[in-house]
Design a binder for these strands. Sequence first.
DNA 1: TATGAATGAGATTTCATTCAT
DNA 2: CATGAATGAAATCTCATTCAT
Lengths: 199, 199, 199, 199
Amino acid sequence: MTGAEKRRTARISQILDAAALCFVEMGFHRAGMAKIAARAKMSPGHIYHYFESKEAIIAAIVDRESAKAAERFAELDAVDSNELASVMTERAIQSIEEKTDILQSALNMEMLAECQRNPEIACIIQRHDKYIRDQLTHLIGNKIGLDLAEARTDMMMVQFSGLANRLLRNPDMDLSSMIALMRQTMQSILTPDTIGDHV
Amino acid sequence: MTGAEKRRTARISQILDAAALCFVEMGFHRAGMAKIAARAKMSPGHIYHYFESKEAIIAAIVDRESAKAAERFAELDAVDSNELASVMTERAIQSIEEKTDILQSALNMEMLAECQRNPEIACIIQRHDKYIRDQLTHLIGNKIGLDLAEARTDMMMVQFSGLANRLLRNPDMDLSSMIALMRQTMQSILTPDTIGDHV
Amino acid sequence: MTGAEKRRTARISQILDAAALCFVEMGFHRAGMAKIAARAKMSPGHIYHYFESKEAIIAAIVDRESAKAAERFAELDAVDSNELASVMTERAIQSIEEKTDILQSALNMEMLAECQRNPEIACIIQRHDKYIRDQLTHLIGNKIGLDLAEARTDMMMVQFSGLANRLLRNPDMDLSSMIALMRQTMQSILTPDTIGDHV
Amino acid sequence: MTGAEKRRTARISQILDAAALCFVEMGFHRAGMAKIAARAKMSPGHIYHYFESKEAIIAAIVDRESAKAAERFAELDAVDSNELASVMTERAIQSIEEKTDILQSALNMEMLAECQRNPEIACIIQRHDKYIRDQLTHLIGNKIGLDLAEARTDMMMVQFSGLANRLLRNPDMDLSSMIALMRQTMQSILTPDTIGDHV
DNA sequence: TATGAATGAGATTTCATTCAT
DNA sequence: CATGAATGAAATCTCATTCAT
């Protein structure tokens, strides 16, 4: 990377970081370009050298955040098949314990709300969602060797997004009991079928 | 109710219905008072006879929608204890099958995103959330007679909100397999403890 | 006066009292008809049975207040010529001591500011001002028998309005010394001429 | 001053000049930002680069006008003590002769009416008023050497503001006689005490 | 590359006034 | 005589975007 390219990348990161913070704090529509610019330590006009519009910024953020999430899931590829189930379970539990993810959730809400209306953003989100799903489906179907891999994948993702939602609505939730239950639920999802036994 | 009171109630409903539609279609912040007014078939100014501000409309909608959700959960009180677990399970499944809830989900996203910033709305949401939680906790703890009633409640609510989220991100999801898994998961949450057995 | 007429007069008074209070508290333009109506304990629409417009209300207030002031000056007509000068002086001093006039001053500011733009109101104010001036000029010229009666009248009125103004800008003013000076000044205005001696 | 700073200062002056004219012609509340902007030859939105709100413009004008008035009084500091009394007297007379001050008076009324409601503006006005008072008190007490300097100061200021008021209410006033009387009154205020002699 | 002045459309909100009841 | 629902124009203010420097 040339010096100019490095500088360009750094500038873009500055903008995305500033914008993400602003979006979380004030929401997409209340976060003015002026404030984002101030936080990114550049002039409002200059942002338009790097992004065509405000929407392009949120698209870039969605892209970046989704890529991060995909990366985290990609790490699971390196995990031994026997341990996969428990590693994934611990991931979910970690989400409960570290409340840092609440910020992330807030950004997620913003992104989802926006994607409802903006087809371009909806497209980016769904592309990344599919990537993660494929990754997980591969792990569950091929490495762990379970049937109904796609459904199990979706069910796992239900747990992750549901958990974020729940932490947002009930911040005082009793974590320790939840952890036990979440462990049980994840195991149930990743366990060869006993479906029908309990009905 | 006098004629005047009836008219007033009808007018307020008109506004809330119009606003809810606008919010779903374009989001809280893109839905202008002018558009809401047009849809409610009254002048923009007149809305302010019934609501102090746009935020007050949002708050009223959140209240109304949350109340609806709370009501649906309240119905479970009448269900026989033996059937409770399966009735609740069927509810979750119903959410998957009827995609009408997607609209509802969209409004939910709006509400959650907004509650992030608006303390008054956060308060309304949490009040209703607590009501639902208490209701469920009572059913699970007293009628079904399970331990860890609060954690099981939260876990159930994770399923509901997670599902809504998932349907939004992956509209093409294969429903039939999901239903089977969801049934199993709900049962696992509502079954006397085998926690620790799988770890 | 018939009962109906009495009722009408009372209603009009209610409106004028309410409006005057509103104008003092919030200014002419910030005092909405809705608030005036609420304070007058009637509906906004009903005010228009008695007054053609909001401007008509301020015109009526100006009229009423000016009439009151004229009345107070008319009382001076009954005072013995020898005592006139000192009675008038005591009037000025009374204005300093009773700060009740500050409310009146506030309303005066409102009226003057408004009259600057509204020719109808300017006309009412000037009509009453002329009436008071004529009254005073008559007293000073004919009863006390001074020359330059018109100029002395204006000069006296300068003291009254100037005083009100001053109390508004410097509410902490030391009153007792002012009283002595005001007494001297009024005497100087109402004393046969030594004009030119000091020049 | 850099070019940018000069431009900024000029822009701000444009706004204040335009706003002051609008306020005099139509009053604070009838002068819309759109009209002010048009007169200042810029877009309404751009005014908000320089002033936070319409009130901030009002405050700035009050500040500027009050500062001008204070400056005029400050000039008196350079006058010889012997001539001070007569110079001040001539000032008052000048106010009568030049009717240009009527415009100024109109703005003054607006300012006073507004200060009744807006504490920030009341504060600015009182700050400048105090400055003028201190200046005058110093001149009267130290340079001329009179007792009761503060009361005499207030009394002089009564003349100035009273005069402005009077010219507004009685535009047809006979000036020449007034001048003679005003001269006499000012002398009386600035003359070592004969208080009590006339009572 | 970088600035920030400038625009102008559009947002929310207020309010005098009218009118059906 | 009395109400208050209803209107719609206008007010203040915000903000994405452009452009001269």
